[in-house]
Amino acid sequence: MGNKTKKKIITAEDVRYVAKLSRLSLDEDKIGKFQEQLDGILGYIAQLDEVNTDGVLPTTHVLSSMKNVFREDELRESLTTEAALKNAPEADEHFFKVPKII
């Protein structure tokens, strides 16, 4: 490869690794496309390096007046088991049912 080839920010190997972290599995032919698109996006995002952020606090909440929210530790009404299980792809009495784990 010649010197003109721009260094990739994200490689196909990185995409496979992040897909694994994300619990996604991508077809080999899709990996190249995602890699190319993500590389383009990250290339654009790299402009943030220009901004001097020395001594700048990261935003934790957009409204500086916001404080932690607490409530009394008391019982409140919540969803019934029946309502919580209603949308489950598979349920068994009081439980969500999933494929065998061990």
């Binding site: 995002i45 943030l48 390096d49 901004v51 952020t53 700048v56 990261p58 935003t59 934790t60 957009v62």
Partner: peptide, 13 residues
């Protein structure tokens, strides 16, 4: 990435 972006966000605000 993430921390940098949250700092730039402060500057935008």
């Amino acid at each position: 990435y993430y921390l940098k972006a949250q700092k730039v966000r402060t500057k935008i605000a």
